[in-house]
Nucleic acid binder design. Structure first.
Lengths: 341, 341
DNA sequence: AGTTTTTATTCAAACGTTTGAACAATCATT
DNA sequence: AATGATTGTTCAAACGTTTGAATAAAAACT
């Protein structure tokens, strides 16, 4: 039952008594090919169960129809729904996507980039690892003339298309909300400030505190890797302060979960003693008790914009179109961890 | 700065005054090429920043060095750590992997398979969507002679390599544990029984109940899609029974989370009134309150075995090696949701 | 009827690599 | 010194498609 030899355009050509190039043109809907030939070719192609050899076409055209996507990790609602959207849109345009996870490791990210370049992807859509500070590998992508689109974790210095949310403003919204709930002393469990988005969130947090006349203290801002353990560790640390906070803004829901757990272990009432707001709207955030207030980043929209940015780059390859920084407004979802009655 | 033309083996050949085929053989470490030529070629390749054209080589060799991986969704600790491991191992062997998410949809799965076949992957590693009952698309993979490895969600009828855990036995362990905690009436929120793994879990559940002389009632077994909402809905339904259960075994941690939330809303003590055990050891399971007892499926090991199964298939392409069903023992992690003091 | 234009197809080269066969040169064996 | 084996390289074809130029045939215009 297994067909040893695959059918090629040559086989189709033989059946119809025309040349392979005519078949190729017919399949590609070339204007100079007669309607009759086109329908004939399509018919025969179907009969012989013809599957085009993507590799041959890719080689000839110098285009692989593959797009690389680099994310820090797939195990997150935010990233998984972004790649889902990207895959969806790019598949429609005939692209396949190669997803790689950096696991927040710079080293792994570099290896991924090399692998993608070797695979001759037509473009790379990426969100940088937390660890990444050196941009040499990203420069490498650019220097090869391969379209590069960054989302969420990007770098201004790279001068490429970027899609993300307004982190600065998100912090402002969070702080305003906490202030409205009566918080007077707000801590921030932050990501590392060398990453642009976390830096902006910290800036937004500081400026908002200033605006509301609240104390800005170094003890109240702790940077970390934002893993669950970090949330636990830092929350414990905050509780040891002589003057503990009554509100905590946390740059990630996993981290917020860790913090929440510590508070529960210590029998501290959330939100009344300490109110919490997280970030990212993970799938569990609405489901734990108390449910976690958080920032929804509109991941699908980000995915959509990233995919379109890539397609646009490809379509206008050497037209030198100006680059796009697309900044979305994020949305605060108020849940029980910060809603004082 | 951008090098317009890429260097090819021809360029290297010109520099050294030898033929491209000699260069090719040198690069592939052909035994008949002299050591001197090999080192020369490597040197020049480095100088010219030579990057092999994977497409050309793939076309000639009829091998893309791409492997497709199909998972129901990336947003799960189980699947994301499996693909991480697969990627890791296969990258080392020079393969890149294309990940696609079926989102538990049969239709999406079919499209993914078509896309992967079109991309001419060298093999497919897949875990089937819950929805999938027709195996025609998987048969298509087989009929093309492309190695197919299934994990977790597999089908015996397909007769391909399979890696999974012993679902039947996992259920037994769970029930035994719940019985030890004093449960006398144990419900099961199950996946759809048309999927082999869920069928086996149901069978294990039933047989274990029988073994311990506990009641087996249709009302106590509810099949679902295992989403969070399903957990909520079904738990509410179970609480409406005239005779409510005192233990619930749930085939997924997300679902268990939904169920847990309902119990807390109803002020039912977990584990003392109702003990819960989930499945999959999601990242949040240890972190909610009470922490959820669950089955750890050794996802990394599964990923490792799947990758190796693929490599083994490739290595022994036409040797007709017998197929491997690899069944791992799962491990029960006892946490507070089922630990009565 | 002759010339130009249009239409449909073929020709031939190209994309960059791989690979078995062929060849020449060197070395070993008698 | 003649023969055979070994070594290092070249030759040429192949993988399956695409594409611009060339050609042939048909149609349209003088």
């Amino acid at each position: 039952m297994i067909n040893k030899k695959k059918t090629t355009i040559k086989d189709i050509a033989n059946v119809l008594g025309i040349t392979p190039s005519a078949v190729s043109k017919a399949l590609n809907n070339h204007p100079r090919i007669s309607e009759k030939t086109k329908t004939d070719v399509l018919q025969v192609a179907k009969n012989l169960n013809y599957q085009p050899n993507r590799l041959a076409s890719a080689l000839r055209k110098g285009k692989s129809n593959l797009v690389g996507v680099i994310i820090p990790r797939a195990n997150s609602h935010f990233f998984s729904s972004i790649i889902q959207k990207i895959e969806d849109l790019l598949n429609k345009e005939g692209y396949n996507i190669i997803i790689t996870q950096s696991n927040e490791s710079y080293e792994k990210e570099c290896r991924s980039i090399d692998a993608l370049l070797y695979t001759q992807v037509d473009g790379i859509i990426a969100s940088m690892a937390n660890e990444t500070v050196k941009l040499d590998y990203y420069e490498k992508i650019k220097s090869k003339g391969i379209p590069l689109i960054l989302f969420d974790r990007g770098e201004n210095d790279l001068n490429v298309d970027y899609i993300g949310i307004d982190d600065y403003q998100s912090s402002q919204i969070v702080i305003e909300h906490l202030v409205n709930q009566g918080c007077k002393r707000i801590a921030h469990i932050a990501g590392f400030s060398h990453t642009r988005i976390y830096k902006n969130r910290i800036r937004g947090y500081r400026d908002a505190l200033k605006k509301f006349g609240l104390p800005i203290e170094d003890d109240l801002i702790v940077e970390s890797n934002l893993r669950i353990e970090d949330g636990r560790r830092i929350m414990k640390q905050l509780l040891k302060l002589q003057n503990i906070p009554d509100g905590v803004y946390i740059s990630g829901d996993y981290t917020a979960l860790g913090a929440l757990q510590v508070l529960q272990e210590e029998n501290i009432n959330v939100p009344n003693d300490i109110a919490l707001v997280g970030f990212s709207n993970e799938s569990f955030s609405s489901l734990v008790t108390p449910s976690i207030s958080t920032i929804e980043q509109h991941s699908e929209k980000i995915g959509e914009l990233a995919a379109n940015a890539f397609l646009h780059r490809i379509a206008t390859k050497n037209e030198n179109v100006s680059l796009n920084k697309m900044i979305l407004q994020a949305e605060l979802i108020i849940r029980n961890s910060s809603k004082r009655k």
